[in-house]
Simulated assay, not measured.
Amino acid sequence: MAAQGVSRRDRVRQATLAEIRAVARKLLIERGPAAVTINAVAREMGMSGPALYHYFSGHEELVGAVTADFFRELTAVVEAARDSCPPDRRGGRLLAACRALRGWAIMHPAEFGWVFASPITRKRRPDSPRELAGRGFEQVFLDEVAELWKERPFPVPAPGELHPSIQEQLRLYADSSGVGMPVEAVHVFLECWIRLYGLLCMEVLGQLSFAYSDLEPVFEDWLRELAPKLGIDYEEPSSSS
C-alpha cells in the first residue's frame, strides 16, 4: 500500500534519486572517482545528461548526496557495533565503534576514499545533506568520549599549556559541537582521532603495504595505546568482531 499523502509522482522521483546514487556508487567502485560524472551516470541509466539535471543541479550536488549516503551507512554500522555493548561498558562501546569503522573502511575502500577526499566543513553549506550526515558520524565518537569525560575525566594538558591559537580553535569547535568538555579534553580527543583516522587512511590507501600485509595487529596496538589516554581499559575484540 502506498504511503498516505505521498503521490505516485513523488514515489517515482524518490526511486529515481535512489537509483542515481546507486549507479554513482557502482561507477565509483568499478572505475574510480573520476568516472562519477553527470553524463556517465545518465548513460548507465539510459537517460540524457540534461534529464539528470532535473534531479541534481550538478556534479557537486550529486557528490554531496552520495557522500551523505556513505556517511549514513557508516554511522549505522558504527552505532550498531557500539550498541552491542551495554551502556555501563563505556570503554567497550568506544573500542567496538573504532573496530567497526575499520571494518567498514577495509570492506569499502572506494567509498572510504571518497569520504576521505570530501572533508566535513562548516564553511560551505552547513545544512547540506553531506555536512549533516558527516557531523552525525562525527558525533558518535564525540558523544562517547564526552560521556567518558563526564563519568571519569581522563588526563589532559594543564590549563594554559596548549598554544593560544590551539586553545581558541578548539574553543570554537567545542562551542559549535556542543560537546561539553574543556578544550584540553577536546585536544586529547582530536589527537586520538587524528592517529586513528590517519592509520586507517594509510591502510585503506595502501600506503603501508610495503611493510605490512596484515594491519589488524597494528590497529589493535593503537587501540591499546588509545585506551589509557581516554581513561579506559583495553578489551580484546570478541570473536564476532
Rank of each mutant, 00 (worst) to 15 (best):
E220G: 02
M202T: 05
P86R: 11
G113S: 04
G180N: 08
V115K: 02
E111P: 02
K229W: 01
M45L: 15
H59I: 14
S48R: 12
Y55T: 11
W149H: 15
I38C: 08
R25L: 10
E216L: 04
V188T: 13
T16M: 13
S213Y: 00
E235V: 10
K26M: 14
R195A: 15
D88H: 03
L200W: 07
V12K: 08
R152F: 01
R152P: 02
L199M: 14
L208Q: 10
G46I: 06
V36N: 06
L172F: 06
L28I: 06
W114T: 01
S239H: 02
S84L: 04
I166D: 13
P109I: 03
W149L: 12
V77F: 01
F141P: 02
R11W: 07
A174P: 11
L95D: 02
G134M: 03
R89P: 04
W114R: 04
L200Q: 06
E151G: 05
R82C: 03
Q4K: 15
G231M: 12
D175W: 01
L170I: 06
A68P: 10
S57Q: 10
A105H: 02
A97W: 01
F70V: 07
D175L: 01
V218T: 08
G103A: 11
A174V: 14
L62M: 15
Y197V: 10
F71D: 06
W193M: 09
V188M: 09
M47C: 14
F56P: 05
G136M: 08
A211F: 12
G160I: 15
G180T: 06
P87W: 08
G58W: 03
A18R: 14
A158G: 08
S177E: 03
I232M: 07
V186Y: 10
F189E: 05
T67R: 05
A3D: 12
F71V: 01
S241C: 07
C192N: 11
A22K: 13
L94C: 12
F210I: 00
V36H: 00
R130P: 06
L196W: 13
E161N: 04
K150E: 05
E151Y: 02
F189Q: 11
R99V: 01
L27A: 11
A174H: 07
D175N: 00
E79N: 05
S165T: 09
L170V: 04
R31C: 14
R21M: 08
G206R: 12
R171W: 03
V204A: 03
L205E: 13
Y55I: 09
